[in-house]
Design a protein around this nucleic acid. Structure first.
Length: 810
DNA sequence: AGTTAGGGCGTCTAGACAGCATGTC
DNA sequence: CTAGACGCCCTAACT
């Protein structure tokens, strides 16, 4: 089928496709068109990666817009949202506008209403539905990318519920679901009332095999001799071989540490294959990597990149990741050793893919768990760059003949698993049941179950009669929501309370909200009794009893230390207290407690007991104590960040990468924002303290730098240097002698000018300004001088290296 | 004496979505 | 009930 014979397309589109060199549609694309893709039929396309799924989506969206309405493209990752946006922007010259909406991407609801194509994550779409975005009703087509992710325990239910809601709101909606090859694509198609298009066709050949001994044995029975030779490891031998052929390699391993050490070894191979010009480009790249962050990870990465290799995992900063991905796509980097981040993320094809580890540690499983067939196939699918490589090869590594046989059986010959709805899990239902009630989708339990009947879960259980399980879980979830006063039950009818509405709108897990509310309330209780007794006690008898112990603790503490200053600290929650509060909610991914951490944080727990909001579980009696401690570890990381502790110090103190810090900070910011609003809604007095703690996390600074750090172009480091040079505020920035500012910014004229411009200084020019070296003031370390009481105690060890209250971190 | 290969032992384990509301003289 | 790669330290054997 050629572009001109596709029905239903807006004018000019077929010509554009032909101009792009598309003479003939790929077979799966043609099949989808034949099934009515461009005339409004719903389609489930279960096809391999890189076999033209994007065009299927584009054809559906453009023709749907032509018929009237707008199109929504749902992606699983934020990084993919911007990738898709730039792909779709090529249609803007034909009059189709594109907008993106993700949590971090700024765009208001009204602005989106003017766009024809909207790209968003499934969570964002869910959130927009909860907040009744008006344009949802105008949708005529929704595309769900990577729909097999409904199988994911954490995020699958959101996608499932979101699609169900979109289809309920808009019964005529065309649904196009793009999926990897899965075991039960027809079931997914049944669920979405769609025609199934299934195909194994790929635009370039993919060969899959197992390396064992001195050859790769391929699925077609052929062999490629590949002796380990001088290399003592299989991976390096294959990388070397691929490189001699001018190709790149992607190596999948099962842990971050393995990725880094593999990259170091491979750098020894790649460095022998570089041209002079590549060497110099790589060295520029390494500098760019070092500029991103001064954490050790950054330097390690830069050192391997100089030699043409790289590693890739979630501990990297986002900038690191995109630098690595781009350089690999440009063929500058010859090999990447990666954790599964890369298989799920943006498009990074490679001549060869090596799957070194096919088992991964899983605590619940209790050991090394074999990866899913689907996951292995996704990794293999990265092999072969369309238009660049003659073919792609995916190689699994075996250390014995038995293992080779097992790998063939388990993965190469195997069909991928069936996707299975995870909706009946309680955490998922908790959120979605509340949202469904709050947004008026259901007003009775029957209505709720009726709505849930539109989900994949229902499709999959209808036959087996297992729907009863969903009803059971729904009952217990309703009871939970009722007890926590998020919903009200009046006979059969269900409605959300004001706080329930807020929780749903804030996109919080109700359990997180309950934890935050309890924490803030218990503080209120404590503060009221201990300090003033002026505020009326909330008319909630249960709460009073529940937290009487916490109040008592506070009172005791208060008497012991009892001076005016302490009364003030007790009047508002401390940052650590708040960081801990949000860190222990289910919405925060917790840090892992390493050996030795347990005693370190137990000690810290007692030391700063008075700061925690709510009751501290008993060290000896309560099983939740360890969880409490890992939340404390997370809270300490956040506190360190807000105390301006160096990034590289934080990374080795907590055993995390720069990317993890950013992630934690972002989540904390979001949760503190939610806490602020909850405190406001419930008229709890702590919202000012919450707001400040949030601001400090946002910029990673102490109080006194908040004003400066809010200026564009000034981060935590520049703010501190300016402050030490005597430039303490925006006003100072506008009035201070330029030489001083330039000196504080280490003579960077361009940066200084940009900053002065951003702060609105009359004449920002730095021409002819002589740099004034920072004087004595700068010799004063930030945390030994102007620190408030509440902080100095905890940070004396931070920079001074003195006896640490927290013990041996180093 | 310095270096390196190899064994024993302890340690540690993938990923990443979401709210709100804007700023400056 | 269940794993395994890595790094570190130690020792033995080698140059």
């Amino acid at each position: 089928m050629n572009p001109a014979s596709i029905p239903g397309l807006p004018s000019g589109i077929s010509e554009q496709l032909a101009d792009d060199g598309i003479e003939e549609l790929y077979p799966p694309q043609a099949e989808a068109v034949d099934a009515g893709l461009t005339t409004g039929e719903s389609i489930v396309a279960s096809v391999p990666t890189a076999s033209g799924k994007t065009l299927i989506a584009e054809l559906a969206m453009l023709s749907a817009i032509e018929r009237g309405g707008k199109a929504l493209y749902i992606v699983p990752l934020r990084a993919l949202a911007s990738e898709k946006k730039s792909e779709f922007e090529k249609w803007e010259k034909h009059g189709f506008s594109v907008g993106v909406s993700t949590g971090s991407y700024e765009s208001s609801g009204e602005w989106l209403a003017t766009r024809d194509i909207i790209v968003a994550t499934s969570e964002k779409v869910d959130s927009l539905l909860r907040n009744n975005a008006p344009w949802i009703a105008d949708l005529s087509c929704v595309v769900a990318d990577e729909v097999h992710l409904v199988d994911d325990r954490h995020r699958g239910p959101t996608l499932e519920v979101t699609l169900a809601k979109l289809r309920t709101v808009n019964p005529g909606l065309q649904t196009v679901a793009l999926s990897a090859t899965v075991g039960n694509a027809s079931e997914v198609a049944d669920w979405l009332d769609a025609t199934l298009v299934q195909s194994d066709w790929r635009p370039i050949e993919l060969r899959t095999g197992v390396h064992y001994g001195s050859a790769i044995n391929f699925d077609d029975g052929s062999q490629t001799a590949l002796p380990t030779g001088s290399h003592d490891r299989q991976t390096e031998a294959i990388v070397d071989d691929t490189l001699s052929d001018g190709g790149s390699t992607l190596v999948f391993v099962n842990s971050r540490r393995n990725a880094e050490s593999a990259a170091k070894r491979q750098a020894g191979v790649t460095k022998r294959h570089l041209t002079d010009s590549e060497r110099s480009s790589l060295s520029e790249l390494a500098d760019a990597i070092r500029d991103v962050s001064d954490a050790e990870t950054s330097d390690t990465l830069a050192r391997v990149v100089e030699k043409g290799a790289a590693f890739h995992h979630a501990g990297l900063a986002a900038e690191h990741r995109s630098i690595v991905e781009d350089a690999f796509r440009d063929r500058l980097l010859k090999v990447i050793a990666a954790t599964p981040t890369l298989a799920a993320g943006v498009n990074t094809p490679s001549r060869r893919v090596i799957i070194r580890d096919w088992r991964r540690y899983d605590g619940e499983y209790g050991g090394m768990k074999p990866l899913a067939v689907l996951e292995i196939h996704q990794m293999c699918g990265r092999a072969g760059r369309p238009g660049l490589d003659p073919y792609g090869e995916a190689v699994l590594l075996a250390k014995s003949a038995d293992e080779m046989d097992e790998l063939f059986e388990r993965y190469i010959w195997a069909e991928p698993e069936a996707v299975q709805s995870k909706l009946a899990a309680e955490p998922a239902l908790r959120t979605h049941v509340l949202a469904t009630i709050a947004s008026g989708f259901a007003t009775t339990k029957e209505g709720l179950l009726e709505f849930l009947d539109g989900t994949l879960y229902a499709t999959q259980t209808d036959a087996g009669g297992e729907f009863g399980r969903l009803e059971q879980v729904t009952d217990s979830v309703l009871a939970y929501l009722d007890v926590n006063e998020f919903i009200e039950r009046d006979g059969d009818s269900l409605s959300a309370t004001p706080i329930g509405h807020t929780v749903s709108r804030l996109y919080l897990d109700p359990m997180s909200a309950a934890e935050i509310i309890d924490g803030l309330r218990s503080f209120e209780e404590g503060a009221t009794t201990a300090v003033r007794r002026s505020k009326p006690t909330p008319p909630d008898g249960e709460l009073e009893t529940a937290f009487s112990t916490a109040s008592d603790l506070r009172e005791t503490d208060q008497q012991e230390t009892g001076n005016a200053d302490d009364q003030e600290t007790i009047d508002r929650p401390t940052p650590l207290g708040l960081y801990h509060l949000v860190s222990r909610t289910p919405d925060m991914y917790q840090l892992y407690l390493k050996s030795g951490d347990k005693s370190t944080y137990t000690e810290l727990c007692y030391e700063r007991e008075s700061e925690f909001l709510g009751q501290v579980p008993s060290e000896f009696e309560d099983v939740r104590f360890e969880e409490w401690l890992s939340a404390l570890k997370t809270a300490r990381l956040l506190e360190d960040w807000a105390l301006e502790v160096d990034e590289d110090r934080i990374t080795d103190r907590y055993g995390v990468g720069p990317g993890d810090i950013r992630g934690k900070v972002e989540t904390a910011q979001w949760l503190l924002g939610a806490a602020e609003e909850l405190a406001g809604t419930l008229e709890l007095g702590s919202n000012i303290a919450v707001r400040e703690a949030k601001k400090r996390i946002e910029y990673g600074v102490r109080d006194e730098l908040l004003d400066l750090a809010g200026v564009r172009g000034i981060g935590r480091k520049r703010a501190r240097r300016l402050y030490e040079a005597g430039v303490e505020s925006r006003t100072d920035l506008r009035d201070a002698e330029k030489g001083v500012i330039l000196g504080a910014l280490r003579g960077r004229r361009k940066t200084a000018e940009t900053i002065l411009e951003n702060v609105g200084r009359e004449n920002p020019s730095m021409a002819d300004v002589r740099e004034i070296e920072p004087s004595v003031r700068s010799a004063v370390a930030p945390d030994t001088s102007d620190v408030t009481d509440e902080e100095s105690e905890s940070t004396s060890q931070t920079n001074s290296g003195g006896q640490a209250s927290l013990g041996d971190f180093e």
